[in-house]
Every structure is written in C-alpha cells, then in structure tokens.
C-alpha cells in the first residue's frame, strides 16, 4: 500500500524548525554606556541592580570606580569606557550596575541604560574590525545597526575582559 501524501510529507519533515537550524542564535544582555552599545553573553550576566554607594579603593587604576556592597558581597565596580579608553561613564540616577561572572571572578559594570536580553542570529555577528584599537581584543564581534544613527552593537567577551581587568589591577 502506497503512503498517503500526508505520510510522505511527514517522512521528509524536519525534526525541528528549519529556521532555527539554518539561523542558530545566541542570547546577549545588551546595555549602553555613553554612546556605545555593548552586550555580554547572557550566560555571564548574573543580575542588574541599582547603583549603590561606592567606596573608592586605594592604589587601583581609575577604571576601577571602587567597590559596592550587594547582598552581603563586595563587588568591584568597573567603568568600561575608561577601561577601553573610550572616555568615562557619567553616573546618574538612571545608571545601573550589571553584575558579570566568569569562574570565580565577579565584577559589576556601570551602565547608563540597560536594554535587556536579545537573541542575535550567529550569522548576523560580524568579526571585530581589523586594525582597531586595543579595545578590539575584548570583542567577540559586532552587529550592524538597522540604521546608522543607532551605531553598532559591540559583543564583549566577558571572561577575557575580566582577565584583562585583573591583570591590569595586579600590575599596580
């Protein structure tokens, strides 16, 4: 007995959505500092909290704004703009602390605005531009904006970033 058209169709049907197969995605946590749009892989972001009073830490580089107490934990707070040599963050009432984690390293990053989680198709991630400045070494890639005004989204490699931060702090 020959299969019905439906049975034939089912026999060749994929196991999951073909769109997912052809366009795998990654989840990123997006935020803005100054005019820069940045994102960390969502798996490295623990939480986002309001800015709490900071205690400056002696003998540390300027990009380390200080330490903050959060849920019984002392967290170093980093100004990514200063670290990447792109200016400095302007801390205001809308600023947030984005807590990143990689292994045993936990660190808070100042952010002007938090956009939240976004799924980005891997195919849309472009390699970091060649011949860029030192900050490019911490980039996993960039995502071009839909319109030029928005600016590209910079996908940062948090584990690498934390290692560099640690290395530059320890050098002191």
């Amino acid at each position: 007995m020959s299969p019905t058209p439906l049975q034939s169709a089912l026999a060749s049907a994929p196991d999951r959505a073909t769109q997912t197969l052809s366009r795998p995605e990654q989840e990123f946590f997006c935020f803005r500092i100054g005019s820069l749009k940045m994102a960390f892989a969502a798996s490295h972001v623990r939480e986002v909290v309001r800015f709490t009073p900071l205690t400056p830490l002696p003998r540390t580089p300027a990009f380390l704004l200080g330490v903050s107490g959060h849920r019984g934990e002392v967290l170093p707070v980093v100004d990514l703009l200063r670290f990447l040599g792109k200016g400095e963050a302007k801390i205001g009432p809308r600023s947030r602390l984005l807590i990143g984690i990689s292994g045993t390293y936990v660190c808070a990053f100042a952010a002007d605005q938090v956009a939240g989680l976004t799924r980005i198709a891997v195919a849309d991630i472009l390699p970091p531009p060649l011949g860029g400045d030192a900050s490019q070494e911490h980039l996993d890639g960039v995502v071009a904006a839909a319109n030029e005004k928005d600016g590209a989204l910079h996908l940062l490699n948090l584990p690498k970033l934390l290692q560099s931060i640690r290395a530059r702090v320890v050098v002191r």
Partner: peptide, 23 residues
C-alpha cells in the same frame, strides 16, 4: 574580591548592612 587584585595595604572590607563597604 579577586577581580580587584590585591591593592597594597588593603586587607579587606567591613560590610555593614545597607552601608557602603569600609576599606
């Protein structure tokens, strides 16, 4: 915290609830 390195002379913090850490 490890990410803050070990600044010379700083040995830790006193963390009182709701207060900024004291070096």
């Amino acid at each position: 915290p490890p990410a803050a390195g070990q600044p010379r002379g700083v040995i830790g913090f006193w963390l009182d609830e709701g207060q900024a850490p004291v070096v």
